[in-house]
């Protein structure tokens, strides 16, 4: 199972920082998201692309999480050499994260 099977996502940018929301399609999957989509795993997944720290905020009423990623855009939207200066594509890429469904 991949993250895309149970969640949807959108990236926003501010300077060199992006946020990536991860929202459960069905709130019954929210505990699984909380357990498996940790800031450590997101940092590891984005590593090599986004370079900075990852902070996770939880929104239980929305069955959603918000990841804030530092140093994500090679200097920020206005001066980034990246093809995707805003990091907008990273939300869909994160949805390819594999979920551990052994339990």
């Amino acid at each position: 199972m991949k993250l895309k099977d149970i969640a949807h996502s959108r990236t926003g940018d501010k300077g060199d920082i992006i946020n990536i929301s991860v929202i459960a399609f069905d709130e019954k999957d929210y505990p699984l998201l909380l357990e498996q989509v940790t800031s450590t795993k997101v940092k590891e997944f984005l590593g090599g692309t986004a370079l900075g720290e990852v902070t996770r905020y939880e929104l239980p009423t929305l069955a959603a999480m918000n990841f804030v990623v530092q140093k994500a855009l090679r200097g920020g939207v206005t001066r980034s050499l990246r093809m995707d200066k805003h990091g907008k594509t990273l939300s869909s890429i994160l949805l390819e994260m594999t979920m551990d469904t052994k339990h």
């Binding site: 949807h8 996502s9 959108r10 926003g12 940018d13 501010k14 920082i17 946020n19 929301s21 929202i23 399609f25 905020y57 929104l59 929305l62 959603a64 918000n66 804030v68």
Partner: peptide, 16 residues
């Protein structure tokens, strides 16, 4: 609710 949730968190850092 899904389109609203995505937009509420768009370009937000600490939601509080």
């Amino acid at each position: 609710t899904a389109t609203c949730k995505e937009q509420l968190l768009y370009e937000v850092h600490n939601p509080a």
